[in-house]
């Protein structure tokens, strides 16, 4: 099973208990002190920068340049398609205008004034990756986006479908989209204090992580980020208060939208810049 688990910023050796235990698991094989020292000496890790909402940039390090977005912006237009399941439509928030795509739009509009900006949302509630990919041509490519933000994996994990099929569907779709000169960003599942009860996300997250590396597209690790927020005490994800639940959902979506915007802008500028980042 290829998977990448909760990793705080690589430069951080101040690990909480959970992370300490996990590090212990690793250290039985290697002296983890050496590993920490290695990470500490690394020039890339030395930059302790923060993305919006206290997310360490280490979590968003894999963010390949978005060449098609840069090209579209040169033509003073940009079309983004946010393609996902029900959370993309803002499940639990006070309305679709509070869902993360709206915030992504706001960030992009702010950064690129004077650009004909279009952010479209395609929500296919409860669909597995395989089901979503069936509509790739008529639903996604036909809309001619420059960038697709693809949120997937929740239904697959809940349904406990074959990992192989899930991985194949994701990789095939990424290949097709990139072949059509459409940039892609992936987004994985939501973390919740009791979501592990409903599904085993680990292996599916592992596949998304692997597909993002293999096809060289960015992955917003929503699960890890939300887990981090919970640990930081930024949001109370387990509350029973319905009103607070909605307030939290709004705030989380705002943060996710900001993060996505941050990633898109960062990757676009690196594509447009004179020196392509060799990351």
């Amino acid at each position: 099973m290829s998977l990448r688990l909760q990793i705080l910023s690589p430069s951080s050796c101040r690990l909480r208990w959970r992370h300490r235990l996990r590090a212990l698991a690793g250290s039985l094989l290697l002296v983890s002190g050496t590993a920490c020292a290695l990470a500490g000496n690394d020039p890339a890790a030395a930059v302790v920068a923060e993305a919006p909402c206290g997310v360490p940039t280490g979590l968003l390090q894999h963010n390949p340049p978005l060449r098609n977005v840069a090209k579209a912006l040169n033509g003073k237009r940009l079309k983004v398609l946010v393609w996902g399941t029900r959370s993309t439509a803002g499940a639990g928030t006070s309305g679709t205008d509070q869902a993360y795509p709206a915030h992504l739009r706001a960030r992009l509009a702010e950064r690129y004034p004077g650009v004909a900006l279009e952010v479209e949302v395609l929500s296919q509630p409860g669909q597995t990756a395989t089901q979503m990919v069936r509509g790739l041509q008529p639903e996604v490519i036909a809309r001619k986006p420059d960038l697709v933000v693809w949120q997937t994996g929740s239904a697959d994990a809940v349904r406990n479908t074959s990992l192989q099929e899930f991985g194949r569907a994701v990789s095939r779709a990424l290949k097709t989209l990139r072949g059509r000169n459409i940039d892609v960003m992936l987004m994985d599942m939501q973390y919740g204090p009791y979501s592990d009860l409903l599904a085993n996300f680990r292996p599916y997250r592992g596949y998304l992580w692997w597909a993002s590396r293999q096809e060289d597209v960015a992955l917003l690790p929503r699960y890890q980020i939300m887990e981090l927020w919970e640990e930081q005490g930024r949001f109370d994800l387990g509350t029973e208060d319905r009103k607070l639940q909605r307030v939290n959902a709004d705030a989380i979506h705002a943060c996710l939208g900001d993060l996505l915007g941050w990633m898109v802008i960062d990757a676009t500028e690196r594509a447009a810049g004179p020196t392509d980042d060799q990351r």
């Binding site: 959370s87 499940a91 639990g92 928030t93 509630p125 929740s154 919740g192 979501s195 319905r242 959902a249």
Partner: peptide, 20 residues
């Protein structure tokens, strides 16, 4: 168990997304 959790916490942010 699912019924219990849905009844007790029932956060639509998760319940709807997870298709519970």
């Amino acid at each position: 168990q699912i019924g219990y959790v849905a009844e007790r916490f029932g956060n639509p942010m998760y319940m709807e997304e997870m298709n519970v």
